[in-house]
Simulated scan of single mutants.
Amino acid sequence: MRLRFLGIYPNTPNDGSPTIWIEEETGDLIIQSWKADDATVREMQKVGSVPGHTTDVPEHETVIRLPANMLQFIPRPEAAQ
Protein backbone atom coordinates (compact mmCIF):
# COMPACT_ATOMS: atom_id res chain seq x y z
CA MET A 1 0.00 0.00 0.00
CA ARG A 2 1.28 3.45 -0.88
CA LEU A 3 -0.42 6.44 0.73
CA ARG A 4 -0.02 10.07 -0.32
CA PHE A 5 -0.84 12.89 2.10
CA LEU A 6 -3.51 15.26 0.73
CA GLY A 7 -4.24 17.71 3.52
CA ILE A 8 -4.82 18.49 7.16
CA TYR A 9 -7.41 20.70 8.86
CA PRO A 10 -6.32 24.29 8.08
CA ASN A 11 -4.44 26.15 10.83
CA THR A 12 -4.38 23.09 13.07
CA PRO A 13 -2.70 23.86 16.39
CA ASN A 14 -1.72 20.30 17.43
CA ASP A 15 -2.31 16.54 17.09
CA GLY A 16 -5.65 14.90 16.35
CA SER A 17 -6.89 17.12 13.56
CA PRO A 18 -8.80 15.80 10.53
CA THR A 19 -6.37 14.56 7.90
CA ILE A 20 -6.82 13.00 4.44
CA TRP A 21 -4.60 10.62 2.47
CA ILE A 22 -5.15 8.78 -0.84
CA GLU A 23 -4.15 5.19 -1.50
CA GLU A 24 -2.24 5.53 -4.78
CA GLU A 25 -3.13 2.17 -6.36
CA THR A 26 -6.89 2.17 -5.67
CA GLY A 27 -7.75 5.87 -5.30
CA ASP A 28 -9.38 5.10 -1.92
CA LEU A 29 -9.46 8.01 0.51
CA ILE A 30 -8.16 7.39 4.02
CA ILE A 31 -9.75 9.89 6.40
CA GLN A 32 -8.95 10.66 10.01
CA SER A 33 -11.62 12.89 11.44
CA TRP A 34 -13.87 13.50 14.41
CA LYS A 35 -16.15 10.63 15.31
CA ALA A 36 -19.78 11.65 14.91
CA ASP A 37 -21.58 12.12 18.21
CA ASP A 38 -24.59 10.02 19.22
CA ALA A 39 -27.07 12.75 18.23
CA THR A 40 -25.61 12.85 14.71
CA VAL A 41 -25.75 9.06 14.38
CA ARG A 42 -29.38 8.99 15.57
CA GLU A 43 -30.34 11.69 13.05
CA MET A 44 -28.49 9.81 10.29
CA GLN A 45 -30.42 6.66 11.18
CA LYS A 46 -33.71 8.58 11.21
CA VAL A 47 -33.08 10.09 7.77
CA GLY A 48 -31.89 6.74 6.34
CA SER A 49 -30.40 6.12 2.92
CA VAL A 50 -31.87 3.76 0.32
CA PRO A 51 -35.09 1.80 0.93
CA GLY A 52 -34.44 -1.53 2.60
CA HIS A 53 -30.86 -0.68 3.66
CA THR A 54 -30.19 -0.87 7.37
CA THR A 55 -29.03 2.26 9.18
CA ASP A 56 -27.17 0.23 11.81
CA VAL A 57 -23.42 0.87 11.83
CA PRO A 58 -21.54 -2.46 11.63
CA GLU A 59 -18.73 -3.16 14.10
CA HIS A 60 -16.10 -2.81 11.34
CA GLU A 61 -17.34 0.69 10.37
CA THR A 62 -17.73 4.06 12.07
CA VAL A 63 -19.40 7.37 11.26
CA ILE A 64 -17.09 10.37 11.01
CA ARG A 65 -17.80 14.07 10.70
CA LEU A 66 -15.66 15.66 7.98
CA PRO A 67 -15.51 19.46 8.32
CA ALA A 68 -16.63 21.28 5.17
CA ASN A 69 -13.28 23.04 4.81
CA MET A 70 -11.63 19.62 4.33
CA LEU A 71 -13.50 19.10 1.04
CA GLN A 72 -10.83 21.17 -0.71
CA PHE A 73 -8.40 18.26 -0.28
CA ILE A 74 -10.60 15.60 -1.92
CA PRO A 75 -9.40 14.85 -5.46
CA ARG A 76 -11.88 15.46 -8.29
CA PRO A 77 -11.90 13.86 -11.75
CA GLU A 78 -10.37 16.14 -14.38
CA ALA A 79 -13.76 16.71 -16.09
CA ALA A 80 -15.35 17.93 -12.83
CA GLN A 81 -12.77 20.66 -12.19
Score class of each variant (00 low, 15 high):
Arg76Glu: 11
Glu61Phe: 13
Pro10Met: 00
Thr55Ser: 11
Ile30Pro: 00
Ala68Gln: 09
Met44Gly: 00
Glu61Asn: 11
Met70Ile: 05
Asp37Pro: 03
Glu23Val: 10
Arg76Gln: 15
Gly52Val: 09
Ile22Glu: 09
Val63Pro: 04
Gly7Ser: 04
Ile30Arg: 12
Gly7Thr: 03
Asp15Ile: 10
Ser17Leu: 04
Asp15Glu: 10
Asp28Pro: 02
Arg4Trp: 00
Asn14Gly: 12
Gln72Thr: 13
Arg65Gly: 02
Pro10Gly: 05
Ile31Asn: 02
Asp15Gln: 08
Asp28Val: 14
Gln45Asp: 02
Phe73Cys: 01
Asp38Trp: 06
Pro51Glu: 13
Thr55Met: 08
Phe73Asn: 01
Phe73Asp: 02
Tyr9Phe: 15
Pro18Arg: 06
Ala79Asp: 14
Thr62Ile: 04
Ala80Cys: 11
Pro77Ala: 14
Ile8Tyr: 00
Ser33Leu: 01
Lys46Gly: 00
Glu24Ile: 13
Val41Pro: 02
Val63Met: 11
Met1Asp: 14
Gln81Met: 08
Glu59Lys: 14
Met70Asp: 03
Gln45Tyr: 03
Glu24Ser: 11
Arg42Asn: 06
Thr54Lys: 09
Asp56Cys: 01
Arg42His: 03
Lys35Asn: 08
Arg2Lys: 15
Leu71Ile: 15
Glu43Phe: 09
Arg42Val: 11
Gly27Leu: 07
Ile74Ser: 07
Gly48Leu: 07
Met70Tyr: 08
Ile74Asp: 01
Gln72Ala: 15
Ile20Phe: 06
Pro75Arg: 06
Asp56Ala: 14
Gly52Gln: 05
Arg42Lys: 13
Arg65Leu: 12
Gly7His: 06
Val41Asn: 00
Ser49Leu: 08
Asp38Cys: 01
Met1Arg: 15
Pro58Asp: 00
Glu23Pro: 04
Arg76Trp: 09
Phe5Ile: 02
Pro13His: 00
Leu66His: 07
Arg4Asp: 05
Ile64Cys: 08
Pro13Cys: 00
Met1Asn: 10
Pro58Phe: 03
Ile74Val: 15
Pro77Lys: 15
Gln32Leu: 12
Ala80Ile: 07
Leu29Gln: 07
Thr40Arg: 04
Val50Phe: 13
Thr19Met: 14
Gly27Trp: 12
Leu3Thr: 11
Glu59Ser: 15
Asp37Thr: 05
Thr55Pro: 01
Glu61Lys: 15
Phe5Thr: 03
Thr62Pro: 01
Glu59Gly: 09
Phe73Met: 03
Ile74Ala: 05
Leu3Gln: 11
Lys46Asn: 06
Asn14Glu: 13
Ile20Met: 13
Thr62His: 05
Val57Ser: 00
